[in-house]
Structure formats: C-alpha cells, structure tokens
Design a protein around this nucleic acid. Sequence first.
DNA 1: AATTGGTCTTGACAGGTGTCAAGAATGAAT
DNA 2: ATTCATTCTTGACACCTGTCAAGACCAATT
Lengths: 217, 217
Amino acid sequence: MASTESQQKPARSRRGTGSYDERRIKLAESALQTLGELGYARTSLREIAANSEFSHGVVHYYFRDKTELIVFCVKHYKTQCMHRYDSVVEESTTAENLLTGFADKLVQTLTEESSMHRLWYDLRSQSMFQEVLREDVYDIDRGLEDMIWRVVSQYADLAGNRPLVESRAAYTMFDGIFESALRDHIAGRAGAVEWIRKQIATLIPALCSQPVETESA
Amino acid sequence: MASTESQQKPARSRRGTGSYDERRIKLAESALQTLGELGYARTSLREIAANSEFSHGVVHYYFRDKTELIVFCVKHYKTQCMHRYDSVVEESTTAENLLTGFADKLVQTLTEESSMHRLWYDLRSQSMFQEVLREDVYDIDRGLEDMIWRVVSQYADLAGNRPLVESRAAYTMFDGIFESALRDHIAGRAGAVEWIRKQIATLIPALCSQPVETESA
DNA sequence: AATTGGTCTTGACAGGTGTCAAGAATGAAT
DNA sequence: ATTCATTCTTGACACCTGTCAAGACCAATT
C-alpha cells in the first residue's frame, strides 16, 4: 500500500560482491561472451551459466526471461561502444585528425570486438521476425545513427563544408560498409582492414564536399 | 564399381508429379514460406512439413540435413530474384529510364517479398557464427554485388559518365539502404518506400558524376 | 543465538528438436 | 500378377530447451 508500484530490489547485496545492479551487469557481461561466440539462437541459458560463476537457474532471478537478458546484454554493450566514439569527436581538432581517429576506432572495433558486433547484427536481423525486439533494436540503431552523424557533421565543420546527405542515409552507408568488412574479417578473408580504411577515407570527404554558402548581406 | 562416385537420383518420378528435382524445388518453395515467416532459427522441419504436402520425414529424403535444405532454399530464391533485375538493365534505354526502373523493382521487392529478404539477411547474419554457411552466403553476396554493378555501370554508360566507386563499395551502400528500409517496412513505420526511392534517385547519380576522360592523342 | 530475507542452487517438468530406421504405399517393369 | 525400386509416412530415439518451484545458503539484524 504505502510502497510504490514498482517494487525495488535492494541496492545492497547479501551474498557475492557488489550491488544487485552490479551483479546483474556481471551476469550480462558473462553472457555476452557466450552470445558473441554462439549467436542469439544457439545460445542456451545453461551455456551462459556454464561460462559464468552462476548456475543456470539464477538467470530468472535477475531477468524475466531469455529475451530480456539478451536485450539487456546488447544494450549494455552498445551503450559502452558508442561512448568510445564520442571522445574521438571531441578530441579531434582538424578534419584529417578526425578522419584517421574515426577510422582507427572502426578498425579497432572490427578486429577486437567482432564477436560483439556480429551479435548486434544477429539481434537486428531477429527483430525482423520477433516484434518484441523491434523497439530496443530501433533505439540502438538511432543511437548509432546519431553517433555517426556527430562524426560526419563535425568533419564537415572542421573542413568548412556541410554534409551532402541526411543523417539516416549516412548511417546506413557506413553500416553497410562495416557489416561487409566484418563478414570478411570473421571469415578470415584478407584485406578487410585496409578496405574499410580506404572506404572511410573516401566516403567521409565525399559526403562533405559541399562548401558552406556564405550568408552575407 | 562400374557406377560413378556420385550416385544420381533418377530423373523420372514414381509417385507425385514432376521429376525428383522438381519436387525437391517444390518442397523448397514450400519451406521458403515458413522460413520467411519464422526465420532460420525458429523454423523446425515439422513446421515446414506441416505447411506443405509432405510429412516431416521426407526432408531427409531430399536433403542431407536442415542446413542443406535452408541453404538450397535461399539460393533458389536469390537466383530468381537477381534475374528479375537483369531485364531492367537490358530494357532501359536512357539513364532516367534505368533509374526509375531500378527503383521500381527495389520497391517491389521491398513490399512484396519482404519475408524472403529478411530470411536472406537472417542467413547472412548466421553465417558469421556458422562456418558451413559462409561459402554459400559469400557466393550469393557476390552475385548481388555483380547485379548492382551492372545497374551502376550501365547507368554511367547511359549518362556518359563513369562510376566513382568500385563495385564492392557501391553494393554495400545499396545493401545498407535496402536493409534499413526493409526493417522500417516490416516494422510498419511509414515512409520506407518514399525514403528508398529518394535514396536511389540521389545515390546513383552521385556515384556517377565523374565525366569520362577523353583519351585522345 | 535465533531470526530474517535476499541470494543462489538444484532438480524436475513439459515440450520441442533433428535425425533416422522400418516399413507402407505407389506405380513401372516384367 | 508378381516383382521391384522409388517415394513417402510413421513412430521412435536421444537430446536439448526455457521455466519454475522448493529449498539451501549466508550475511546482517535483533
């Protein structure tokens, strides 16, 4: 009666280390490893638990069901992932600087976090079949779009130009390029890193070749 | 001993109608409906059989296992799908003609065959986790790339220009745009058709803005 | 020391999965 | 009419799945 509708879990733990939320995240990060290895469909809760410090039943203590766990995992990863690009935008002082910094981060993501990213693409594909996933996938997608747009518009600013295309189109192009390079990299086909570097170096300037009109009197 | 290594199935049927290969295709096309509805992972062989004129055991008569069936299905569909774009390229006599014809076909694919295409994207994502799928997915992808390239280079020819980017980059951009529009369309978000029309109308001319250099003496 | 209540494990349940063997059904060939 | 290979169905198998209830465990409180 007196309590709020949403019953809160206590912030402090009795067992284990860290708070409820911290262990929730710990479980999610452990699950991310397995998910990145096996993919959405072929990962079972028992497999997740086996690769963690927990048992298979604990998942339903921290998450309603498998779907909620996986969505939480991907959201958690993507949130971290996007922030890593913010620093590149902020710390770049010249257009060239931004270009190479952005390309470096993309290459780093491609090579060091390929498993996490194929999981993201897996989830996004699944969202075309499972309606419950769509809203979360949409949110992540818009977050990534905004991130790319910050890069592109910042580049345009530094180069004294303005972007030729709108935010959405710019994102889908980069995304297509990244996904293609990711498949090459995962399949062990050579040249993926060089290819994406070249694509970025070509595409970004091309998208910003429009000079700013001087609105003078 | 006297027979060849690869034992051939007879070309004529005893039961049913059509040849062995024809009924193989019939089963595959029936499976495609279910696969397009449920996706790779959530489609069971029993579900496929239930939506067909066969029983669930017959799958292993025509296909070694589930994977072979699904790969065959997607390959079968994609082969048909790609050929439909060839006529557009051949029958277009002007650049504008080609542009609208191509856009029309894309919109038609987007709206009328969204289920088939989400299946393709599903399979492609799965190929990042399952090595057995990679070769077939790669082949399909290259086939699509060639198809797109035929459109782009034909447009450039008709417009008296030459493409700015190479085949691979052009394909990944279109693919990114199409996939994004497909997600919008499937999720019921408005404007997907208009958006992709505009993107095509913008991107193709932009990719072919380079005038042909006259190689004179 | 006893109690409490959050945390986690265990084990079971009901249902679904791909696969395959055994044989029924079918129609052509003899 | 009998034989025969092909085609398809049936039923079973071993295994895996998400879920959840029952209770064990344990730190903090009294």
